[in-house]
Amino acid sequence: MANDLTLPRLKSDDLPIVISAGFVLVILALGSIYTVATLGTMPLLSPNYLLTQLQTGAFLGIVAAGMMMVILLGHIDLSVPWTMTAAAMLATTVGGPAAIPTGLAVGLLVGLFNGFGVAYLRIPSMIFTLGVDSVMRGLMIAHTGGFAPQDSATPLMRYLAADKLLGVPVAIFVWAAVSIVIAAILSRTAFGKAIYATGNREAASYLSGIRTRWVIVGAFAISGLCAALAGVLLAGYSAKAYQGMGNAYLLPAIAAVVIGGTHILGGRGRFIGTVVGVILIVLLNSVLSIMQMPEAGRQIIYGLVIIVMLLVYGRTAKVTS
């Protein structure tokens, strides 16, 4: 479906995207059959319903876009939850026209710090970003005293997250803008090519003259920025920042990137796949909530879907030497 939006590349990279896009259609079809059988209508296929779902998916989509940059390097960013929360809290605390820049600056700083630890200190990203997440959580709990801050989101934050433009939620435009920028970086710039190269083999990239440390710092900075933007928007959507608002976004973001065909060890993956992965997860969640599936069933189905999708196309090569 959406494959013709980006440059054609390797066929094997397209397979996951085609399969997950097909699975999106399967989810929509099964969900519609269910609603026809029980309610007699097909709310799932109405444009309004889909747009609302995509609006809530926009936050996940923005987080996943940043996460993908890091995963393409073979790293991971576990500091996303509290980067989001910190950006949202500081943005609402500062308020006024400086709110959004403050939030984004928080994300940029966290990202640069993550990049410094991973690229220069050579600490595994899994543990360094985990520590940064804990520090951010500590700072925010100390900042707010453990309560939800009373400051509310600025009108601009609310407009970007919850308003509509030409009948389409503005958040979707923001997600689209972020997506276009990231897709352009990945496919059209030297930095994007350097990310793929470094993710494949850092030593070879270094010997080819790529400043691999800067590439790593850059990717983490983008991930921090994206997480901060999603946090600021989420605060706008719910009118205020609250404790742990980012916790529900970390694992779905990783899952969306991987379902979209990006290799968890880095070096392979196309951006459009991440978009399809986000849509898949959002629609799966909404169909399950239409079915009034209890949390237990949701978690099981969610886990099984990821396993099955990966068994179809995410298998690694057999170790033979």
Binding site: I300, I306, L310, A317
Partner: peptide, 23 residues
């Protein structure tokens, strides 16, 4: 036998385990 990366495979099976616990 599925030849999946442990990180992502256990991320998914962890969700299944939580679901079973909730059941």
């Amino acid at each position: 036998y599925g030849r999946l990366q442990p990180i992502i495979a256990t991320l998914a099976t962890g969700a299944v385990a939580i679901g079973l616990a909730l059941l």
